[in-house]
Design a protein around this nucleic acid. Structure first.
Length: 557
DNA sequence: GCCGTTTTCGGCCCGACTGTTTTCAGTCG
């Protein structure tokens, strides 16, 4: 929890420094430290106590002092000075597409715009064009972006919400009073956007737990409180709900508070559940399904009304499981914009029990990501060959080749010699549907492209899909035997479960990849598997459940 | 602000696009 608080404050400092126009490298130093802290497996307070903070590369004397101050006082001098110049409420303006730090500064200085609501009002009045550099077109773009952001302020993506919920659970587990805790609601259903983290808690004294959680620095306000329930608002925007259970009704509550209201309603009617059917004490949730004579429905599907008809017919999908995954085919290394070496990523995959991985670094047009030209790519192959002799996991040679305007970033002669070719779009997001589809067709029609990477380009709580005709895309993918990627990065989850379900009906093949740029991100695989489960996929529908030899056969077909 | 070192300060991913200020700063990936 300390790590989270430190990062909240450091993040605000970095944002305010940007607005102020401070040295870019100073800002980057803050951002770098934030990334390091995010990756820490230990409580940062332990490092402070031991005086080991500066042993983290990227944290020097100055940042170490700042972090120490934050831990002991909740704030720090640097932050307090900055908010004398600019109110922290302007920080969210940085997220508005079309305006960057310098425009935020101008909007504040010239128009006294202090927050998103204010920006919205003044954009609607057409006042933003008073700022040099903002014309009518930009103003329109700003307004639509602000509206979207205002709608999203109290929400987190699945990855961030999971992280926070795990921290809360760990914190609560330390109390002797606590008997057991279970995540329920949208988080248990693995919805892509979470606005409330709900936990069922069985404990001896609920008041003690309430008292202790209310005082956490992450909490911003108390929304509801009684002896059965506590609902709080957090500084991350997302709500936190604790629901009390007893040893006798624990699983009942888990059962009824996992699915959506509509789902529960239909469940009751389809299976004629009556009041009193569940008065016993149950030892597990599966026991409840048994008692009601309902086949077990996985949490991921408990918002899907259609699945209840399948349950009635006893023809539920045999949903894919995490342990079915045998490898990850979309992994970056420090040859392009990944953080770690191929060897480190490969060993990390080995530790996760995989049979294989494929290194798919960016290609040379993506200069910001240090994309590989053919020369470097060939040198990368030498390294992979060497590692394959040393390691007990198979590293496949791949590339995440950029789909350019009218071609792919490597020629066919190169694509042909790669084990795995993922084609992805990283530019021209605003193209018309006609242009975008033309580009995607070039990729799908290329005989050496195996996988279409993050096929719709959407970012959860960030960016809409490219302008595409999804059904047409899927038909072509089926025709050309191109695999559709389920990208597991919680900020992408692309395809989403709705598209997976649709593409599955149209006969597509899928692969679940992490797109990991760091070792830790390999653990995102579970989020992609969650999407697949929500989209009714079974093991057979997903290519990276194949053994290495079957996978190779599939890819060379 | 951090790092590494020629120990006292210079280097620290880039390049395309966009709208607008008609020549480029700001934004974005």
């Amino acid at each position: 929890m300390n790590n989270l608080i430190v990062n909240l404050v450091l993040g605000d400092i970095a944002s305010l420094l940007k607005i102020k126009g401070a040295n870019n490298y100073k800002i980057r130093a803050y951002e770098n430290a934030i990334a390091k802290i995010k990756n820490l497996d230990v409580d940062i307070k332990d490092l402070v106590d031991k005086g080991e903070l500066t042993e983290i590369s990227g944290i020097g004397k100055s940042l170490a002092n700042t972090i120490q101050e934050i831990i002991f006082t909740g704030s720090c001098e640097e932050y307090d000075n900055l908010i004398k110049e600019y109110p922290p409420s302007i920080i969210p303006l940085l997220k508005v597409s079309g305006i960057g730090p310098s425009k935020v500064k101008l909007l504040y200085n010239k128009l006294n715009i202090e927050d998103l609501e204010d920006l919205k009002r003044k954009a609607e009045l057409g006042q933003l064009t008073q700022i040099s550099g903002i014309g009518a077109k930009t103003e329109g773009k700003i307004l639509s972006s602000v509206n979207k952001l205002l709608d999203e302020t109290d929400k987190l993506d699945l990855g961030e919400a999971s992280l926070l919920s795990n921290k809360l659970k760990t914190y609560l587990d330390k109390f002797k009073d606590v008997h057991r805790i279970k995540v329920i609601g949208s988080l248990r259903r693995k919805e892509e956007i979470i606005n409330k983290i709900s936990l069922i808690i069985e404990c001896r004294d609920f008041q003690v737990i309430s008292k202790n959680i209310k005082i956490l620095p992450i909490i911003s306000e108390i929304l509801e409180e009684n002896n059965q329930k506590l609902i709080l608002n957090s500084k991350l925007g997302v709500k936190i709900e604790l629901i009390r259970a007893s040893s006798s009704d624990f699983w009942n509550k888990v059962f009824w508070l996992t699915g959506t209201e509509e789902y529960n309603k239909k469940l009751k009617s389809v299976f004629s559940i009556r009041q009193g059917d569940l008065e016993n004490k149950f030892e597990s949730e599966k026991n409840i399904f048994n008692k009601l004579n309902i086949p077990y429905i996985i949490p991921e599907l408990r918002s899907d009304l259609e699945i209840l008809d399948r349950a009635r017919e006893d023809s539920l999908p045999l949903s894919i499981k995490n342990e079915d995954i045998k490898g990850d085919l979309h992994i970056h290394s420090n040859w392009s914009d990944g953080r770690y070496t191929i060897e480190e990523m490969a060993r990390a995959c080995q530790n996760r029990g995989y049979e294989y991985l494929s290194i798919c670094d960016h290609t040379h047009s993506l200069t910001i990501a240090n994309g590989l030209d053919v020369d470097r790519l060939k040198r990368q192959w030498e390294e992979i060959d060497k590692l394959n002799e040393e390691l007990n996991i198979r590293i496949l040679k791949g590339a995440e080749v950029d789909i350019l305007n009218d071609s792919l970033d490597y020629g066919d002669n190169i694509l042909e010699s790669l084990d795995v070719v993922i084609a992805s779009i990283h530019s021209g997001f605003g193209d018309s549907q006609e242009d975008m589809m033309k580009r995607i067709m070039i990729a799908l029609n290329n005989p050496y492209v195996d996988i279409l990477g993050h096929p719709t380009g959407r970012l959860v709580l960030g960016r809409a899909s490219y302008n595409i005709n999804f059904e047409k895309l899927v038909h072509k993918a089926v025709e050309t035997n191109t695999i559709l990627e389920i990208n597991s990065a919680p900020k992408r989850l692309d395809l989403n479960s709705h598209n997976v379900k649709l593409a599955h009906k149209l006969g597509a093949n899928f692969i679940i990849n992490t797109d990991a740029h760091k070792m830790k991100q390999l653990d995102n695989m579970k989020f992609g598997v969650g999407v697949a489960r929500k989209g009714w996929l079974e093991k057979e529908d997903v290519i990276n459940t194949l053994s290495l030899s079957d996978l190779k056969d599939f890819l060379t077909k």
